[in-house]
Simulated assay, not measured.
Amino acid sequence: MDSMSEQARSQLMGKIRGKDTKPELFVRQLLHAAGYRYRLHGRIPRGTLEKLNRQYPEVRLRGGKLPGSPDIVFPARHQAVFINGCFWHRHDCPAGQRAPATNAQFWADKRNRTHERDRQAIETLRDLGWETIVVWECELRDPKATLETLAHFLGPPARDKDIDGM
């Protein structure tokens, strides 16, 4: 039996932000301290956007952002990082497998839609020639391992002028 009232749960869920979350800020701090420079929330430079639009006219890039609005973008490298909460994105860790007992079907449907949207965004990015990596909230308990994983994915930090893909 769930001890939280529907109103209390609604208030709690309403406080959850879509961007600039604590896990995102933590990963950004790790990367910046290691010398990486990046763009946020799927934004890419106009030149890169125009090039993608010419190469892939069938893909709609809304608002100058990549599909799925990756949390961190490295335009020159054609690499994107998604930082996902285990619960919302159905990670296979214990936190991701736990679901609310109240209104169970609603939450199952909502989480399934998020999972499918994530899958489609990553597939579209791959089709556009971009590499992606997902960093899970539970992995952030080990900052050293997280940074090692990201550094392996990204390669060495680039010069500042490489941020915009120029």
Results as ranks from 00 to 15, higher is better:
M1R: 03
D2T: 08
S3W: 06
M4I: 13
S5I: 08
S5T: 08
S5F: 08
E6V: 15
Q7V: 11
A8E: 14
R9N: 12
R9A: 08
S10H: 07
S10M: 04
Q11T: 05
Q11V: 08
L12I: 08
L12R: 15
M13R: 04
M13A: 01
M13H: 07
G14H: 06
G14P: 03
G14Y: 11
K15H: 07
I16P: 09
G18V: 10
D20N: 15
D20Q: 00
T21M: 06
K22P: 02
P23C: 09
P23Y: 03
L25G: 01
L25H: 05
L30M: 15
L30F: 04
H32Q: 07
A34C: 12
A34I: 12
A34E: 12
R37F: 08
R39F: 09
R39C: 03
R39D: 05
R39H: 12
L40F: 08
G42C: 11
I44R: 10
P45G: 11
R46G: 10
T48A: 15
L49G: 06
K51M: 15
L52F: 04
L52A: 12
N53P: 02
R54S: 15
P57N: 07
P57D: 02
V59G: 07
V59W: 04
L61E: 03
G63C: 05
G63T: 04
L66W: 01
P67M: 01
P67E: 00
P67N: 02
G68D: 01
S69F: 08
P70N: 01
D71A: 05
I72S: 02
P75F: 06
P75Y: 09
A76Q: 13
R77L: 15
Q79W: 06
Q79P: 04
A80I: 01
A80R: 00
F82T: 01
F82W: 02
I83V: 10
I83Q: 09
I83R: 04
H89E: 03
R90V: 05
C93E: 02
A95G: 00
A95K: 14
G96R: 05
R98E: 09
A99L: 13
P100E: 07
P100V: 12
T102D: 15
T102R: 12
T102N: 14
A104V: 13
F106M: 10
W107N: 11
A108L: 13
A108H: 15
D109K: 09
R111A: 00
N112H: 14
N112A: 15
N112K: 13
T114Y: 13
H115F: 15
E116A: 08
Q120C: 08
A121E: 06
E123P: 10
T124E: 03
T124I: 07
T124C: 06
L128H: 00
W130R: 06
W130K: 13
V134I: 15
V135N: 02
C138T: 04
E139S: 10
R141V: 08
R141I: 14
D142N: 15
D142E: 13
P143W: 06
P143A: 10
P143Y: 04
A145H: 14
L147G: 12
E148T: 11
T149Q: 11
L150V: 09
A151H: 13
A151P: 09
A151R: 10
H152I: 00
L154H: 07
L154T: 01
A158L: 14
D160C: 03
K161S: 10
D162M: 05
D162Y: 03
I163D: 00
I163A: 06
D164H: 02
D164Y: 13
G165N: 11
G165Y: 08
M166E: 10
M166D: 07
